[in-house]
Design a protein around this nucleic acid. Structure first.
Length: 941
DNA sequence: CGCGCTGCGCTTTTT
DNA sequence: GCGCAGCGCG
């Protein structure tokens, strides 16, 4: 609904008129929340004694803040200019303002001898902060040998940054000599809470005839792990009955965490110091220091505090934001507006409990804040609930159906207790109820979705309502939502080929687009003459994979490409190279523009060499950093976006795509910040430990048990579905490829096969191969059929950095067999391996643990690992790796890995010839690998 | 029917 | 690395 003309309904009226006191507003999807909030604001500032400076209105995005202001000025005495500086803003921007004005000494409250000044920068770019954090971490590691034991099990430094931010969002801060206030209590855990989780997963199933889920999960205890010598054996952990012994709960929970806590404290505190010394703050630290300031300085707090506080989208708030709101309120005129059903930002530290258990949290937080001083001076026990239930967006059929999402079970071990779910049913004010809800399924989901769109377009069965009239739907009325950007991008790609009017809205992983990958490929060619560059360029030109393989081996690149390379070589700037590459491939669209802009803006702030640019793009691909790109496709086009991006929007027709049998939700809780060491070489270490008795021990058995006690939480996934469905005004289509996921299967809608029929749409002819190349017969033992060394996915796998894991059971068989264990081959692959090994003379061994020092950018990089199977002869040494399928592991990944071992073994056997080879057990043969030089490895590492 | 082993697939984003 | 589903065995 729009604001200017309509009159509020009764509930909205109540919200607008009730401006004094505590209110918790349950504002469901499409209930005219913004309408009511903006009118309420207008009503508040109508009072003679109140000006906009007295009213804090918090939103969660800058865009929302701007929209609020725009809509407020439509019906209040203040104009845009008067509201420009009014506190209608996000928590972050408010905290920034507070720190700018009063934050100079805020760090000293934590014992940090530094200051926040006008020149202190806010780091917005994730890539930049990660780079800074890595630099900090390297220094920290050097300066703190006392934490060596924990430092060496950190495989990904930036996950520690994640931990720091999470603690900051919970209000846990370090001080010079400990933890701020009672922050430490959060780090000790709550045994009672853990024990009840433990008991729940440890309940026997099927009325006692079946072992508990926990016992079943722990069947893998110790598998692929190296535990400390005092770790209990598997049968002691699992017990003999249907349950894990109850005493295990205490054994795994109770451990001395002082070393871990002191490590986390030191990292956290030193990073705060580092950031301030470099004159920057991240978003989390803004809130941290603002909180500290408001906590410590009573006079300042009372001075800043607002007479009225309103918070929009309260389900997206974090613990510290809830507390900041209380510190910023001078009276109990507080109003939070939100909808627990739309809480989908937990990864951003949003806590749905803030709104679900608002009253209890309010009391508890106010109590905590009043520790030692009276900071929340108003009563908090009288909260007036208001529920908006009139929906202005969707038909009643859609509204009723969407509620199903919240009570749908996600799988065998997931159930929803419907009586526990507090759903305020919405009632539609739509006059029509011509709604279609359907589910389609086809292996080629992209084409199926496009076909469905074609069917819907201008189809009288999908009429939609506009101004009380029904009309035919156009492309612009349709939106496709996906859980992942990947799917959206693929769909768009197909749509482009079919010349379908479709546009992507939202952040794009810019560096994972084709223009960026082609640019990276050419840069690699220029800089290193690298296969990884040529392969991509050749593939793009339409060569088949076998042809590419041959061209790379023979280094016989097409003349036209060599000429283009020479042309690029003559260019001085990376901007020039970028422009040339884009123009060669006809990339003139929005992606290319934004890419060029990004590169040039980095270039103008630093002097960027080609090597720098390569690393910049590689990092961009790795981190998947996103940039807002406006594709500006024609006026009448289908919108594609992620569900997260679609929040707050509405479309007449919604297609919810990609409802496939993926395992939902994504791993909750995130990975442990202090994670296990990179598993490279784990199996070899185990073998080595067994063979030589010198295990390299690094694993923690308690963690293995603890992890398995945490139940999966599907609630947010249910809410995500709910958000997607409630965007729809009239029609809802679910779509899945391959197999539908459990949610879709459980929903009360029939899933129908939907074969795509897009033949009538013009398709461009596939590009012709430009060069025919004779493929030489592969060498190898007789009787094996040749097969391509390159699977279809290799380029993608390698480009996206997937496929570094090594372990296959065949490999394990080979190692055990070679080491003299009594192994019987159980499949043809293993038989092939056995035959190969039997045909070789000489000694096999698993090499000792070694460290290969590589010098990278002046810093030492160490790769630790145990060499794979090594075949030693008097005059030569051969490193052998095995693989059954290359689909999941790019050959270049093997080459990288084997190269590391190659140099290790070369050091160990200086007088002998060293070779490294992969044995393709499936159907092929052995192939020698040309190891990367140390210099090339350095580039990769 | 219960249990253990094996193969498969694999992430959202704002300040 | 990890959960889940499918399958074979007892």
């Amino acid at each position: 609904m729009t604001d200017t003309d309509l009159t509020p309904n009764d509930r909205q009226e109540e919200l607008i008129e009730s401006i004094d006191g505590l209110y918790k507003v349950d504002a469901g999807a499409g209930t005219g929340k913004t309408f009511a909030v903006t009118r309420r604001y207008a009503r508040i500032v109508e009072q003679e004694t109140v000006t906009p400076e007295d009213v804090l209105l918090v939103t969660f995005t800058d865009n929302a803040a701007t929209e609020m202001k725009e809509r407020i000025v439509l019906h209040c005495q203040y104009g845009m200019r008067e509201l420009a500086d009014a506190p209608i803003q996000t928590f972050h921007s408010l905290c920034h303002d507070i720190l700018q004005e009063h934050g100079h000494d805020a760090p000293t409250h934590l014992g940090i001898d530094d200051h926040i000044t006008g020149s202190t920068q806010i780091i917005e770019d994730e890539i930049v902060e990660h780079a800074l954090f890595r630099e900090f971490f390297a220094r920290f590691s050097d300066a703190h040998p006392e934490h060596e034991a924990l430092l060496k099990i950190v495989s990904d430094e930036t996950s520690l940054l994640g931990l720091i931010n999470k603690l900051a969002a919970k209000g846990v801060f370090p001080t010079a000599d400990g933890w701020y206030r009672d922050g430490e209590r959060h780090l000790d855990g709550d045994f009672d809470a853990f024990q009840s989780l433990f008991a729940e997963v440890n309940e026997p199933q099927n009325g006692g005839s079946k072992q508990s889920r926990l016992r079943s999960k722990l069947n893998d205890y110790g598998k692929n792990k190296l535990y400390l010598p005092d770790a209990p054996p598997k049968d002691e952990i699992r017990g003999s009955g249907k349950q894990i012994p109850a005493s295990v709960a205490e054994r795994v929970f109770e451990e001395d965490r002082s070393a871990l806590k002191s490590f986390v404290h030191d990292i956290y505190y030193k990073y705060l110091e580092f950031a301030l010394s470099r004159n920057y703050l991240n978003f989390g630290f803004l809130q941290l220091f603002a909180f500290v300031l408001l906590w410590e300085d009573h006079e300042l707090r009372e001075d800043i505090a607002f007479e009225y506080v309103m918070i929009d989208e309260f389900q997206d708030s974090s613990e510290i934001q809830f507390k900041l709101a209380l510190l910023l309120a001078s009276t109990d005129n507080i109003c939070v507006v939100g909808d627990w059903k739309q809480s989908i930002y937990s990864f951003q530290y949003a806590e749905v409990e803030n709104i679900e258990e608002f009253d209890a949290r309010l009391t508890r937080f106010a109590d905590e804040l009043n520790d030692g001083a009276n900071r929340v001076s108003f009563p908090v026990d009288d909260v007036e609930p208001i529920r908006l239930e009139q929906n202005y967006r969707s038909t009643q059929t859609i509204l009723d159906f969407s509620e199903e999402a919240l009570v749908t079970s996600a799988g065998k071990y997931d159930s929803v207790d419907e009586s526990e779910v507090d759903i305020q049913s919405l009632s539609s004010n739509s006059e029509h109820d011509n709604t279609q809800i359907e589910a389609i399924q086809h292996d080629d989901e992209h084409e199926a979705v496009l076909t469905k769109i074609q069917e819907i377009h201008e189809n009288p069965e999908y009429k939609i309502e506009e101004d009380g009239e029904l009309r035919l739907p156009s492309y612009g009325d349709i939106a496709v939502f996906t859980r992942t950007r990947d799917f959206g991008r693929e769909l768009l790609h197909v749509a482009e080929q079919e010349e379908f009017p479709m546009a992507y809205e939202g952040g794009v992983e810019l560096f994972r687009t084709d223009p960026a990958k082609l640019l990276l490929a050419w840069l690699r060619i220029l800089e290193y003459d690298a296969d990884r560059g040529w392969a991509v360029v050749l593939e793009r030109a339409g060569y088949t994979l076998d042809e590419i393989k041959h061209i790379l081996d023979a280094e016989s690149y097409p003349d036209e490409m060599l000429a283009f390379r020479d042309q690029l070589t003559k260019l001085d700037t990376v901007g020039g190279i970028t422009r040339q590459v884009f123009s060669k491939y006809g990339y003139t669209g929005a992606y290319a523009d934004v890419l060029l802009n990004t590169i040039q803006s980095v270039h103008s702030s630093t002097t960027l060499t080609r090597g720098d640019l390569i690393r910049f793009i590689e990092r961009g691909i790795e981190t998947g950093s996103t940039h807002e790109v406006h594709t500006g496709a024609g006026t009448d086009s289908v919108t594609v976006q992620t569900i997260h991006a679609a929040k707050g929007l509405e479309y007449p027709i919604v297609i919810l795509a990609n409802m496939n049998s993926g395992r939902f939700p994504p791993r909750s809780g995130g990975s442990s910040p202090v994670s296990y060491q990179d598993p490279i070489g784990l199996r070899q270490r185990k073998l080595f430990a067994e063979a030589h008795g010198h295990p390299h021990i690094y694993d923690n058995w308690k963690m293995d048990v603890l992890r398995r006690c945490l139940p999966r939480d599907y609630d947010e996934e249910r809410r995500l579905l709910y958000v997607a469905m409630t965007r729809a005004e009239s029609h809802l289509v679910f779509s899945s490829g391959e197999d539908p996921n459990t949610f879709l299967e459980e929903l009360p809608v029939e899933i129908t096969e939907y074969p795509p029929q897009l033949d009538d749409v013009g398709r461009p002819a596939t590009e012709q191969t430009q060069l025919q190349v004779a493929i030489p017969e592969p060498e190898g033992p007789q009787g094996y059929t040749p097969h391509s060394l390159m699977s279809d996915d290799v380029f993608e796998d390698v480009e996206e950095g997937r496929g570094t894991a090594f372990g296959t059971r065949v490999h394990e068989f080979a190692e055990r067999y070679a080491l003299g264990e009594d192994m019987t081959p159980s499949n043809p692959d293993e038989q092939n391996v056995q035959a190969l090994l039997d045909s070789l003379s000489g000694e096999f061994r698993v090499e000792e643990e070694v460290y290969l020092p590589l010098s990278v950018g002046g810093d030492q990089v160490t790769i630790s690992g145990v060499a794979d199977l090594v075949h030693v002869l008097p005059d030569r040494v051969e490193i052998i790796d095995y693989k059954t399928d290359l689909g999941r592991h790019g050959e270049s990944e093997y080459r990288k890995q084997l190269s590391v071992y190659y140099h290790v073994v070369a050091d160990a056997y200086p007088d002998r010839d060293i070779t490294a080879s992969i044995f393709y057990t499936n159907e092929d043969t052995r192939r020698e690998i040309q190891p990367l030089s140390r210099a090339e490895l350095e580039e990769i590492v």
